[in-house]
């Protein structure tokens, strides 16, 4: 019994990915491999072909009439949205190059002046380095399914911003981790990308601040570099949690 063979290697990971048995860092890794490794993508497609016929046992249910109208109304948005994202990405590239140079100079200066050189990964948007832990009244530990803390979020009421500290999750090359707030009712709203490395500050516009009610959930999804192209999570959710008062 204990000697029974198990599915192994790439085939195992592909099957587990198709079933969505994975979470956290393993799910992020499988997502990356599916997008970048043709052999792994093929193994995933084979397992989809093997397992998806299970949906035949799910009873079809006709959705309400209005749903298609709502979809159709949003189809026109899509191409425009994509175009904007391309421009933003170009800007982000320019910003990254600039910010890398500035960081290099700053680091050099810090060494010269003898300050502690707190260099950070200059990639991704413009998060200002967070100061030493402010007195936060709200904190969320976003856990991957296994319960391991993936990222810790604290709310700083003085500056009305969030401090995000990734614990174990570092995005793979070409991928980014995006933080979302899911209000009690309504769609997820992006809080921006979570860079690898040290703590970062995410300043909240007033509209998003309101979304951070007691019902709100926070989640991290895997997205293409530069963030979700659609304004909604497009990749798997690898961690989620809720703000609690401390």
């Amino acid at each position: 019994m204990t000697d029974e063979p198990e599915l192994s290697g790439q085939d195992r990971l592909a099957a587990e990915f198709v079933l969505r048995l994975l979470d956290g860092a393993e799910l992020a890794e499988a997502t990356r491999r599916q997008q970048e490794e043709p052999a792994f993508a093929a193994a995933v497609a084979e397992w989809e072909t093997r397992l998806m016929p299970l949906v035949e046992s799910i009873r079809p249910e006709v959705p309400d009439q209005g749903i298609w109208e709502r979809i159709a109304a949003r189809l026109t948005e899509a191409p425009a949205e994509t175009a904007t994202i391309h421009i933003l990405r170009r800007k982000a590239k320019i910003w990254r190059a600039y910010s890398a140079a500035v960081t290099a100079i700053a680091a050099a200066l810090a060494l010269v002046i003898g300050l502690e050189s707190g260099t950070r990964d200059p990639a991704l948007q413009v998060p200002a380095p967070a100061p030493a832990a402010p007195a936060a009244t709200l904190i969320a530990s976003l856990a991957a399914e296994g319960g391991q803390a993936a990222i810790v979020i604290s709310y700083d009421p003085d500056t009305k911003s969030l401090i995000a500290t990734p614990a174990v999750l570092n995005p793979a090359a070409g991928r980014a981790h995006e933080l979302w707030v899911i209000p009690g009712a309504g769609s997820p709203r992006s809080l921006g990308l979570v860079a690898a490395g040290g703590p970062q500050r995410i300043t909240l516009p007033p509209a998003l601040l309101k979304a951070l009610g007691p019902e709100a959930k926070l989640a991290v999804s895997v997205e293409p570099e530069g963030g979700s192209p659609t304004g909604q999570p497009t990749g798997p959710v690898i961690a989620s949690g809720q703000l609690t008062r401390i």
Partner: peptide, 23 residues
Amino acid sequence: ASPITWLAALARNRSIDRLRARG
């Protein structure tokens, strides 16, 4: 890929992501 396999996988994955995002 079979079109219904492709669509079913997409629907299932997105639903599960939504489920997990909600906790």
